[in-house]
Amino acid sequence: MSEQDRAGQRAVPEQLERALAAEVSLRSRLRHVAVGLAGGCGAAVIAVLWATEPHPLPTRTRAAFATMIAIGLAWAAFAGWVLSRRRPLFARDRVLAARIALAATAVTAPAGVALAAARGSTADLVATAAGGAVLTAAATLTLVRARRRRRELLRLRDALRQDAP
């Protein structure tokens, strides 16, 4: 067996440690959660603004609104892809991310409803309130499931700690 073989079996290479530290980074995960929520919520608010506009908008303004909505949704989709494939959330991260998502929807939904109430028709108001309620409910459900999963793992961890010598 060569020296390289012995070294390989003995220790974890520094390069691997660095790569894995980046892979498990909580900061990177939270950054993507924030980017995704900002993109999604921003797109939702712009959509409410556009829908509740009292007068027909010029073509350029409509194109600008559509572009901003597309950019927001693209960021949300990108963050979703990263968080599902590249930087999946661990149980504790998921609880933290779900709390942030709930806070974001709890701010965005009333803001959208207030905009619709001030600028739009009753139909706009009802549609915005329904959309806000669905998003907030989805965030709440995500939080409940994340907490349940964390609780299961905590219980398992404690049981295993008792079994371990």
Partner: peptide
């Protein structure tokens, strides 16, 4: 049980457990 415990700690998101798991 010790090995499983390490995996569960990683799944929870305890960052210091990853180093142990890899080692």
């Amino acid at each position: 049980a010790g090995e499983e415990l390490l995996v569960v700690r990683c799944q929870l998101g305890e960052r210091e457990a990853f180093r142990e798991l890899v080692a």
